[in-house]
Simulated scan of single mutants.
Amino acid sequence: MYAVDKSLHKLLKDIELLAYLNPNNIEQEKKRFFASKYTIEPVFTYTKPKFDAYKLQRKLFSHRLSLISDEAIRALYEEIIYYYSGMVQCIHTIGDGEKFYYNSFKVFGTPTDKDVDNARFILHFKDVTDPDAIKIHNAAAAQAYFESFSEHYNFPITILQSTRIASDAMVKNSEKTLLLKKNGHFSNNQLKILAHHEIGVHLLTSYNAAEQPLKIFSNGFPRNVETQEGLAVFSEYMAGALTLKRLKTLAYRVLAVDSLRKGYRFMETFKLLHFDYQLNKDDAFTISMRVHRGGGFTKDYLYLTGLQKIFNHYNEGNSLDTLLTGKVTLQHKAVIESMMTQGIVVPSLHKNMAYKTNSNTNTTVDFILKNLR
Rank of each mutant, 00 (worst) to 15 (best):
E78S: 09
E79K: 14
M87C: 06
F155T: 00
I94M: 06
K181W: 02
E147P: 01
P111D: 09
E98A: 13
F108K: 08
V116P: 02
Y77S: 00
N103P: 02
A140C: 04
Q161F: 01
E175S: 15
I165K: 03
S104E: 07
I91D: 02
K176W: 05
T129S: 12
D117S: 13
A141I: 09
K176E: 06
Q89E: 11
S167Y: 07
A139C: 08
F105N: 07
F100N: 09
F149V: 04
E151I: 07
T112E: 12
N154L: 00
A139N: 04
M87L: 14
E98D: 14
R74L: 00
E151R: 15
T110N: 10
E98W: 12
P156C: 06
G95K: 03
T163G: 06
L76F: 10
H152V: 03
K126P: 00
V107C: 10
F121W: 03
D96M: 15
T129W: 11
I91E: 01
K106T: 13
Q143A: 14
V116M: 04
R164V: 13
A142C: 08
G109V: 13
V128M: 09
F121V: 02
I157F: 02
V107K: 06
I91T: 03
L160R: 12
N183I: 09
A75F: 00
P131Q: 04
E175A: 14
H152K: 15
Q89Y: 05
I136R: 15
Y145A: 08
K172V: 15
D113W: 07
K126R: 14
Y101E: 09
G95F: 08
K181Q: 09
K182S: 13
K114R: 13
A142N: 08
D127R: 12
N173E: 10
Y82Q: 03
I73Y: 00
L76Y: 03
V107E: 11
S162G: 04
A169W: 01
S162I: 03
F100I: 10
D127E: 14
G95E: 08
K182P: 01
I159R: 04
H137C: 10
K114D: 14
V116S: 04
A72N: 09
L178E: 04
M170E: 14
F100E: 08
F121T: 01
I159T: 05
T112Q: 07
F105V: 10
Y84R: 01
S167W: 04
F121E: 02
S104W: 08
K176M: 07
I134W: 07
P131Y: 06
I157Q: 02
S148C: 05
G109S: 11
